[in-house]
């Protein structure tokens, strides 16, 4: 079964409901990357409100996905983590998740838009000063 990826303007939305098996995860990752590159999407919101366990394997997978997206120039935001999952994850160890997060899908879209907007403004380069 494929994990569906939806599109909202230039943003991709995906929801990890049941536990991903390895092949599904790899498929999801490559699909996100392809959509960002080929279809000019700016980033992805990954919702995990349906997960009641985030173990170190899932955490690694999410981290990996986020860095892949960032490497090709996109942004990724994780949303919807259940409070008890967050609690357990923190108890389990430090620094297990290394990506932008937001409370829910709506907030996630806002965070992602901000990230994209902040990146979208190219640094102003001062015109070279020419002595006359």
């Amino acid at each position: 079964m494929k994990v569906p990826i939806l599109r909202l303007g230039r943003i991709l939305l995906t929801s990890v409901l049941a536990d991903l098996v390895d092949e599904q995860a790899v498929q999801l990752q490559s699909e996100i990357l392809a959509l960002i590159r080929d279809d000019r999407a700016d980033g992805v919101v990954i919702d995990i409100s349906g997960l009641d366990v985030v173990d170190s394997y899932i955490a690694r997978l999410l981290n990996e996905t986020a860095s892949m997206v960032r490497i090709i120039g996109g942004e990724a935001v994780l949303t919807g983590m259940q409070p008890l999952v967050a609690l357990t994850l923190v108890e389990m160890g430090r620094e297990t998740l290394d990506m932008q997060t937001a409370l829910d899908l709506e907030a996630g879209v806002a965070v992602l838009n901000n990230l994209i907007a902040a990146k979208g403004q190219p640094p102003t380069i001062a015109a070279p000063h020419v002595d006359t």
């Binding site: 170190s56 394997y57 690694r60 981290n63 108890e91 389990m92 160890g93 297990t96």
Partner: peptide, 20 residues
């Protein structure tokens, strides 16, 4: 030990389990 993994994992599996 935290952060050690032979398969490119996070390395928090066993120490994490111990803490839980």
């Amino acid at each position: 030990r935290d952060g050690y993994s032979t398969i490119g994992g996070l390395g928090s599996g066993l120490p994490g389990t111990q803490r839980l």
